[in-house]
Lab assay of single mutants.
Amino acid sequence: MGFKLLSKLLVYLTASIMAIASPLAFSVDSSGEYPTVSEIPVGEVRLYQIADGVWSHIATQSFDGAVYPSNGLIVRDGDELLLIDTAWGAKNTAALLAEIEKQIGLPVTRAVSTHFHDDRVGGVDVLRAAGVATYASPSTRRLAEVEGNEIPTHSLEGLSSSGDAVRFGPVELFYPGAAHSTDNLIVYVPSASVLYGGCAIYELSRTSAGNVADADLAEWPTSIERIQQHYPEAQFVIPGHGLPGGLDLLKHTTNVVKAHTNRSVVE
Rank of each mutant, 00 (worst) to 15 (best):
E145S: 14
Y48A: 15
T60H: 15
G148Q: 09
I104L: 08
I74V: 08
E172S: 05
A215G: 09
P244C: 04
R226H: 06
Q61G: 04
A234S: 09
D118K: 04
K258G: 12
E203A: 06
V212E: 07
T93K: 00
D85P: 00
L250F: 08
L13W: 09
A130N: 11
R128V: 11
Q235C: 08
G158R: 09
L106C: 06
K258S: 13
K8F: 15
A25Y: 14
G123D: 05
V124S: 07
I84D: 00
A21R: 08
I84F: 10
G169H: 06
L82T: 08
F26E: 15
V37E: 15
D248P: 10
S181Y: 05
D52Y: 09
L204K: 14
V166E: 08
A66F: 15
T207A: 13
P152L: 03
V112K: 04
G65P: 05
Y12G: 09
A51R: 07
A136N: 03
Y202I: 15
D85W: 00
E39I: 12
I20Q: 15
A133Y: 12
T207D: 15
S31F: 08
D77H: 09
L24Q: 13
V257T: 07
A218H: 13
H115A: 00
N184L: 01
P239Y: 03
P244D: 03
H230W: 09
L204W: 11
R142N: 14
S193R: 13
H241L: 02
I17Q: 05
K91S: 15
V187H: 02
A215P: 04
N149Y: 09
I227F: 05
G123N: 05
N184Y: 03
Y196C: 04
A215C: 05
S223T: 13
N211T: 09
E145K: 14
L143G: 05
Q228R: 11
F236G: 04
A51Q: 07
R128M: 11
S155A: 13
S56T: 15
E157L: 13
E101C: 04
R167A: 10
T134H: 00
H115V: 00
R206C: 06
D79W: 09
G105F: 05
H117Y: 03
P41V: 13
F3Q: 05
S162D: 11
F116Q: 02
E147Y: 15
P221N: 11
G242F: 04
R120W: 01
I201G: 02
P232A: 10
L156S: 02
K91F: 07
I238P: 04
A98I: 10
S161A: 13
P244W: 12
S139K: 11
L243I: 13
Q229S: 12
S27M: 10
R76V: 10
V146C: 07
V166C: 04
E39M: 11
L47E: 01
V124L: 08
V75F: 02
A144G: 06
T86C: 01
R110I: 13
A215E: 06
R142W: 10
S56D: 10
H154W: 12
I17D: 05
E267C: 02
A129G: 11
P221W: 06
A51M: 06
V124F: 04
I151K: 08
I227V: 11
T153I: 14
H241A: 00
A218Q: 14
A215Y: 04
L195C: 01
A66R: 10
S205I: 07
T222P: 08
K91Y: 10
L143D: 02
T93Y: 00
E225A: 12
V189M: 05
R76G: 07
Q229G: 13
G105D: 09
I224S: 02
S70A: 03
A192D: 07
G246H: 11
Q103I: 13
F236V: 10
V75G: 01
V265D: 13
T261D: 10
V108K: 02
A87Y: 02
D183E: 05
A90C: 04
H230K: 14
G65V: 07
S30E: 15
S223D: 02
G169D: 05
V132W: 01
S193W: 10
V42W: 05
V171I: 09
A178T: 07
L83M: 11
S113K: 01
P69W: 15
I40Q: 15
L6P: 08
H117I: 01
D118N: 07
L243G: 14
R128Y: 11
S155E: 13
N262D: 12
R142L: 13
A21G: 14
T182S: 12
A130W: 10
A25L: 11
D164G: 12
G2N: 14
I186D: 00
A51K: 06
T60F: 15
S139C: 04
I186K: 01
G65M: 08
V28K: 06
T182P: 14
G78T: 07
Y68Q: 09
V54F: 03
G242H: 05
D183T: 01
R46Q: 09
T60A: 12
V257G: 01
S62D: 07
A259V: 10
A129K: 11
A95N: 11
L10N: 14
F168H: 03
L247V: 14
A130H: 15
D29G: 10
T109P: 05
G158S: 09
W88D: 00
A179L: 02
P138W: 07
S22P: 11
T114N: 01
A87S: 06
Q235E: 13
H57V: 01
G158Q: 09
M18P: 07
T182G: 11
A213E: 14
P152C: 00
N92A: 06
G105C: 05
R226A: 08
R263K: 13
V237S: 01
T134F: 01
E101V: 10
H180R: 04
W88T: 00
G148S: 10
S139I: 13
E44T: 11
L127F: 05
G78W: 06
L143I: 14
V187A: 11
E157P: 12
P239N: 02
I104R: 00
N184P: 00
T182M: 13
R263H: 12
F168G: 02
A21H: 15
D119T: 00
A129D: 13
S31P: 08
S181I: 00
H241K: 00
E225D: 14
E33H: 07
E101I: 07
H57E: 00
L81I: 12
E172Q: 09
V187P: 02
F26N: 09
E225Q: 13
T60S: 12
I17L: 08
Y231A: 01
G122H: 08
Y231T: 00
H117E: 00
L10C: 11
R263F: 11
L143M: 11
S22F: 07
S16P: 10
S223R: 02
D125Q: 08
Q228K: 11
Q229E: 12
A200Y: 05
E150M: 02
N211P: 13
Y202E: 05
I17W: 08
Y34F: 15
T60E: 07
L73I: 07
A136D: 03
V265L: 12
H57L: 02
W88F: 01
M18R: 06
G131V: 05
G2K: 08
S205A: 10
A25G: 14
V256L: 10
Y135F: 11
L156K: 05
T114Y: 02
A192F: 08
I224Y: 00
E219I: 10
R226W: 06
K251C: 06
N149S: 13
T86F: 00
L13K: 11
N255S: 09
P232D: 07
F63A: 11
L250Y: 06
S160A: 14
E33M: 08
D77T: 04
I238S: 01
V11L: 06
F174M: 14
I84H: 00
V266D: 15
D183L: 01
A200V: 07
V54R: 02
D216Q: 08
W220I: 02
R76C: 05
L24G: 10
S208Q: 10
S7Y: 11
G210N: 04
Q49S: 09
I84E: 00
K102M: 14
P190L: 08
V212W: 05
A98L: 14
S223H: 02
H260G: 13
N262W: 10
A192M: 09
L97N: 00
S181R: 02
G43H: 10
F168M: 10
L73S: 00
E172I: 06
E44K: 11
